[in-house]
Design a protein around this nucleic acid. Sequence first.
DNA 1: CAATAGCGAAATATCAGATGTTTTAAACTT
DNA 2: AAGTTTAAAACATCTGATATTTCGCTATTG
Lengths: 245, 245
Amino acid sequence: MFKSAKFNRISENIVQQIRQAILEGRLKPGDRLPAEKDLADDFGVSKASLREAFRALEALGLLEVRQGVSGGAFVREVDAQKARDCLTNYLFFRNPSISELSQVRCIIEPQLCEITAQIATNEEVDELEKNLWDMKETLDNGRFSHELEIYFHQKIATIAGNAIICLVMDSVRDMLVGIKDLIHTDHDFSVAVFLAHKRILDALRMRDPERARVEMYRHIKEVEEGLISYFALQGPESFKSFRSV
Amino acid sequence: MFKSAKFNRISENIVQQIRQAILEGRLKPGDRLPAEKDLADDFGVSKASLREAFRALEALGLLEVRQGVSGGAFVREVDAQKARDCLTNYLFFRNPSISELSQVRCIIEPQLCEITAQIATNEEVDELEKNLWDMKETLDNGRFSHELEIYFHQKIATIAGNAIICLVMDSVRDMLVGIKDLIHTDHDFSVAVFLAHKRILDALRMRDPERARVEMYRHIKEVEEGLISYFALQGPESFKSFRSV
DNA sequence: CAATAGCGAAATATCAGATGTTTTAAACTT
DNA sequence: AAGTTTAAAACATCTGATATTTCGCTATTG
């Protein structure tokens, strides 16, 4: 019956109006808003209040304000990075367990891998193969690169071609990396990862969706068990510092 | 080699510092920051700049500023709604097709349904059954309720128990609802949805994960095809107004 | 006595206007 | 022609005054 009376704050009111204009298509990405002074007059508010609204809209990724003679406030598309940051912020407070993160992977990545096996081009498979070789090289040097491991999974998700899923998986990986950075995984673990990737790649090259799905699932479960046992070894106190990553 | 020199803006600098303090655990949800005046002095900036930073942190869901004698700036946990809004903003600009949204569902919901079949309690299944009866009743009255349809899927996701997945599915559903609101689905379509839900529920009650998964997949595919054919009938011009939802 | 109206202090909200900084392009110099 | 200076547009920041909100305390009143 009544409309929300929450937004007594002027800047919030302005944020809502501009956001609404964008969502209704009256403002489009690239559009430039009137100059600070003029817009403040239009809204009937001071520059300070308008600028507070601008900062909020910038934080949301809807606006970009540039200084200089050709500057001003420009409408922006919210980019994936912004959405990902926001998701990561949220996940930080939820402080998800290894199991919860791993469950997300188990639900999504095997299906993704199945799709990838169906649609990947030869060039894309070659790229994955190169990644595998790179990993083997660092392994032979007694090292292990998280970046290479991440790239493998990221690439498979990218090939599957669903941007929404990619975004979610990126955020989940952000969290897992935060955990992995605290753990010393040993050489055996690294070799297991390499071999699992190898089996997944084999299935992809054979264009065997079912096997690709199963191998990916096994890989994720194996990593989960590995991480959990490492954590058990190193004791729960390492969990505390997890938050500080 | 160099650190990002992007943040010449004072408010952005403050945002980063406070955000960092939260992420490192030096500031916790519920903590109250010093009064505006004092904090501005600490940072060596004016109140105006500090307030701009506050507005950005509020937009991110990390801070809540209240007026009044017991007011001030309080650290907050980023809540699911905030993350969801952000995701929805992002999806708005990506303007995903029915196929892309449906693909997300196909990847996630069948797995979810499989898990639910394994762990649902009798009470939870009863709740789903009640939802089904409610839907039947509205159907018999010649109507159809999107809310009831959504509830069914939401409940299954909730039972599966992964908050991250729930959040993503909520956002995807937001988008799909925006599309459905523009479409007049006929009675046959509604009946098909009802029957599909019935089959899914049967599988859940039988605790048959495999069948639950398959039935959910079929249901999503059926709805996707329905929506696409409706869109084809009503012409692409309805797509334009989609953005204004 | 209990409900309530009023008051005052603390804290944020808003405003107005002065001053600083950045950016661009045109004018100017070599 | 190439580089340099300069002027103006637009945002960035600061300052200090004033308004509004909130809450505890007190006084009033039925």
